[in-house]
Nucleic acid binder design. Structure first.
Length: 636
RNA sequence: GCCGUUGUGGCUCAGGGGUAGAGCAGCUCACUCGUAAUGAGCAGGUCGUCGGUUCGAUUCCGACCAACGGCUCCA
């Protein structure tokens, strides 16, 4: 019998009998590896342990410690869940069940939606089935055979999936009496699923299309062992403690009210302070970078929205009002006023680029059901700017914006993800325009040296864009900064500039935000810091606390001195024990508590205590002011 | 908009067909106290809204509103 030779990651070559599989290879290396192996990467592709080896194959054994393990574990666990659901509810139809970022899900078509109690039953069943230790067996059928099989089983969704596949054969996996269409690979048997938990139930449209049937989705998570699962679950708990909606209430930053309306934020003093600090920061940073601050009205005539195309494309998201027989639209975007400013005079190429910046408050009627704390609201303020420049200036303008984003995110210590969205099927503008703009965005991204994703065909109909996303405490992505090229508006509003040759030319427009919506940004910011804002952002930077009533005069004078110097300070002069006041200040996450007792009165000082419990050395009010200013100047 | 869950004093939550309870917060009094909760007393709710069933609804049913977890859509 002939031998085959396969190479391993360390460069060594193993000789095996013809017909050997991965498991055999692992066993030939060592019994320990054979036991730990769950799959393999052969010639770059992930495969099952039962996959046959061929001569010259490059093989890497995947164990529970491998980075690929999690996805395989989760995928197999989703099959295990489907098996459990089918055994409990035979009439359920299975659809798709992939591994996702923090776990997996599986969508089912069931007559009666799942209840939370069902979840417990399903999880119990899964444990039972895992214990049964069924082998996951890979079968390869022709398309026709597979369609016939799933038709017989009544799995119509699977039939639809297979029909859409452009292949000759498909693979199926069988575990016990459960068979599912799947590319694989999978764990060798169900007992490898030893750490999982079903987390939630949700509705989800078949194939993500809201015109199609709503299925029932079960989300779950799985890890290679119990320890990691527990660690993940406790991270989840911790994340809930950072939830901006919870902290917003606890720290008295903002609220919502049924009486006011859904998705409309009411900023309380401390939240409004935080917002004001951010807005001041933004004005300063924009002026530094040669932007001009502009301001437009909240409502503009409906005719203008018709001209811009918003009326046709965005009407259902807009609020309208009528006065004296004239219809007005409440602005959902800030661009129109900026257009009007550009058009207010004849522009020369010498004037460009023009950068109009507005902290523009907009209103959008978001569909009920999508609202989410500060992260998705109906009225919000964008740090919006429109850059009007010559086509030649586009490159450097976009680079400038990306550098701006990087600077600002650096100050807040945010990691972010960037995505480039290119021309969709339905679009306007010339090929030339699209190519130039896409190139400019791409070039700037490459130039930034950061990683980015490309979403082909995901751009706006009016131009390509770069989206920058931040994550909330629960790891959900939220778009904040965005840079969008726009070919429509300069056209529709007939914007021109006089070029060097005296000809009138069309400027290019870039629509961009840095923080995005202040509301959303603050929501993410609260979760990022878990409410422990750095000194420069803290709505309350310090609180003067007395030990007894004896220190009230000194405390008042310290408070006045700090206030006069612009420090955001409060005073707690109540007749309460120091420990009680410290606790309250700490729960409010105030950075510095300035303790004033008899000793401090005598020496004319305060004893600053940081919210982590550490004390600074005793200092005078003036020294503390200097300290605060230095910290704040360095964005600490 | 769609699917599911939830909606009880300022907050967190218990209860349940016969018109409601706890802790915290609030108020009053006492204590004058050194780095995460001093003690006692008092007050506070037409149980999200509107209908229906019932002798009787906060509890059961329906609609609506809102929140929460998702889907779709988006800053």
């Amino acid at each position: 019998m002939s031998k085959i030779r396969v190479s391993l990651p360390d460069g060594s070559v193993k000789e095996l009998e013809q017909g050997a599989n991965i498991l055999g290879l692992a066993a030939s290396i060592g019994a320990g590896l054979a036991k730990a192996a769950i799959a393999a990467r052969m010639d770059g592709e992930l495969v099952d342990l039962t996959a046959l080896l061929h001569d010259g194959a490059k093989v890497e054994i995947v164990t529970e410690k491998s980075p690929e393990a999690l996805e395989i574990v989760r995928h197999t666990t989703s099959h295990l869940m489907a098996q459990a659901v089918k055994s409990l509810i035979p009439g359920a139809k299975v659809t798709i069940g992939p591994a996702i970022e923090n776990g997996f899900y599986y969508d089912f078509d069931v007559e009666v939606p799942f209840s939370p109690e069902d979840l417990e039953k399903i999880e119990l069943k899964m444990k039972e089935l895992a214990k049964a230790n069924s082998k996951l067996e890979r079968l390869v059928l022709t398309k026709a055979e597979a369609i016939k099989l799933f038709c017989e089983m009544g799995e119509t969704y699977k039939v639809e999936l297979i029909e859409d596949l452009d292949v000759a054969t498909v693979s199926l996996y069988r575990q016990g009496d459960f068979v599912d269409l799947c590319r694989g690979p999978h764990l060798p048997s169900t007992s490898f699923c030893k750490a999982f938990k079903l987390t939630s139930i949700a509705g989800a449209y078949w194939r993500g299309d809201e015109r199609r049937k709503m299925l029932q989705r079960i989300y779950g998570t799985a890890f290679v062992d119990k320890k990691e699962l527990d660690a993940y679950l406790s991270r989840l708990e911790e994340a809930k403690r950072r939830d901006h909606r919870k902290l917003g209430k606890e720290l008295d930053l903002f609220s919502f009210s049924d009486e006011v309306g859904a998705g409309l934020v009411i900023w309380h003093p401390k939240g409004a302070m935080l917002r004001t600090i951010l807005e001041d920061f933004e004005r300063k940073e924009h002026l530094k970078r040669d932007y001009d601050i502009v301001l437009g009205p909240q409502i503009l005539k409906t005719e203008l929205w018709q001209r811009s195309g918003h009326y046709d494309n965005y009407r259902e998201n807009m609020y309208f009002t009528e006065v004296d027989g004239q219809s007005y639209g409440v602005k959902p975007m800030n661009c129109l006023s900026h257009m009007m400013i550009y058009k207010s005079q004849l522009r020369s190429y010498r004037d460009l680029p023009l950068r109009y910046f507005e902290l523009g408050t907009v209103h959008r009627h978001e569909r009920a059901g999508v609202l989410h704390g500060l992260l998705r609201v109906r009225g919000f303020t964008q740090d919006d700017a429109h850059i009007l420049c010559t086509p030649e200036q586009l490159d450097s303008e976009i680079k400038g914006v990306l550098a701006f984003v990087s600077d600002v995110m650096g100050i807040f210590g945010f990691e972010y993800e960037m995505e480039l969205s290119t021309r969709p099927d339905k679009s306007i503008g010339s090929d030339d325009d699209w190519e130039r703009a896409t190139k400019a965005l791409l070039g700037a991204l490459q130039d930034s040296g950061r990683e980015f994703e490309i979403n082909e065909g995901d751009g706006a109909f009016y131009g390509p864009k770069i989206d920058i996303k931040l994550r909330d405490a629960l790891d959900r992505k939220w778009q904040c900064a965005t840079i969008q090229c726009d070919f429509t508006l300069p056209e529709r509003f007939d914007l021109t500039y006089v070029a060097a040759d005296g000809e009138k030319k069309r400027p290019v427009m870039v629509h961009r935000v840095i923080l995005g919506a202040i509301e959303r940004f603050i929501g993410v910011l609260i979760e990022h810091y878990a409410g422990n804002f750095p000194l420069w952002l803290s709505p309350v930077q310090a609180i003067v606390v007395t030990v007894t009533d004896n220190q009230i005069p000194h405390a008042r004078s310290v408070y006045k001195t700090l206030r006069a110097a612009g420090v955001r300070v409060q005073q707690d002069l109540r007749n309460e024990k120091l420990g009680f006041k410290i606790r309250e200040a700490q729960l409010q996450k105030i950075p510095y508590m300035l303790v004033v007792g008899d000793k401090e009165v005598e020496s004319g000082t305060v004893a600053p205590r940081y919210r982590d419990g550490k004390n600074l050395s005793v200092m005078t009010a003036v020294e503390f002011i200097e300290f605060v200013n230095t910290e704040a100047d360095n964005y600490r």
